[in-house]
């Protein structure tokens, strides 16, 4: 029997209060975003009339339409490539146990602690030297490299949990490495791969500093990077800034709500073991 710390009612009271603290900022910018443009917004006030104009201004005149397109182009390059490379490497390191796989795994894991700040300056000059300034390809490659430490780590850990008998059995049947991966391991790896996919999409969507530096052309930046630039120009136009922020937030929130189990399990499950 455990000591009952507090009553059930109080527990839920606290949880609801905290949930409100998390959600109030969203309510704040949603309300601000539907105020008529340039109207003074004060606190959590309701607008006199609901106006969607800020969204269309942000989308068209502030180029958020094309910024979102850049974000999607980069994510479309980064996500599949990073997931495939991480899966292949995890297979080679953990299942095939290539000679030297231990130090190589270590080198990838070390990458988890290195901040973007450390690489971004020299990366900019290296890429400039090879003529890859302002290039989507350069950003895509750099992001893949940034997300690989986690991806390799994640897939290695996943493959380490797969019963080895499964792999051995199909090898005895004469299956080659690639067939083992595609026919035996992939079908039981979709949950791990899905989680990795949504996490990498999120990181790619949210990446700021790397894009700010490697893409000097403001028109071709991603949505968050464009937002960071935008805030300098329109720092006092709260309704417009709020609408632009919501445009940047909504896609990732939608992915989060659709795949929240993957996000949350990625966060909590393994931590404990």
């Amino acid at each position: 029997m455990r000591v009952r710390p507090v009553g059930v009612g109080l527990r839920y009271g606290v949880l609801f209060a905290l949930a409100a603290l998390v959600l109030v900022p969203f309510v704040g910018i949603i309300l601000a975003s539907v105020h008529p443009p340039d109207q003074q917004v004060s606190g959590l006030s309701l607008p006199d009339r609901i106006s969607w104009e800020n969204f269309s201004v942000a989308w068209n005149q502030a180029h958020f339409g094309s910024l979102v397109r850049s974000s999607l182009i980069i994510a479309a390059g980064v996500v599949p490539a990073a997931v495939i490379l991480a899966t292949l490497a995890g297979y080679g390191l953990t299942v095939l146990r290539a000679p030297g796989s231990r130090p190589v795994t270590g080198a990838f894991v070390l990458g988890l602690t290195i901040p973007v700040e450390l690489v971004v300056v020299s990366l900019y000059f290296n890429l400039r030297d090879v003529g890859l300034s302002n290039s989507y390809l350069a950003i895509i490659m750099a992001e893949i490299a940034l997300f690989l430490p986690f991806g390799v780590y994640w897939m290695s850990a996943h493959f380490a949990q797969v019963p080895i008998e499964l792999v051995e059995a199909s090898r005895i049947d004469g299956a080659r490495d690639l067939i083992v991966l595609l026919r035996v391991l992939l079908p039981i790896s979709w949950p791990a791969i899905t989680t990795l996919t949504v996490l990498i999409f999120m990181w790619s969507w949210n990446q700021f500093l790397l894009v700010l530096v490697l893409m000097q052309d403001p028109e071709k930046r991603t949505a968050p990077a464009g937002l960071g630039y935008f805030v300098g120009q329109y720092s006092t136009n709260i309704p417009l800034l709020s609408a632009a922020s919501l445009i940047v937030i909504l896609p990732i929130v939608a992915v989060y709500l659709a795949f929240q189990r993957n996000f949350v399990s990625g966060l909590t499950q393994g931590a404990v073991k």
Binding site: G92, L96, A98, S101, M141, L148, V152, D177
Partner: peptide, 27 residues
Amino acid sequence: PGRRRWSGWLYILPAAAVYLAFAIWPT
């Protein structure tokens, strides 16, 4: 159980190459 396989490097190489060029080298 099972032996180490050099062929594993075929699978590691693509990731290692990108990581070396765009993360280790800039570091």
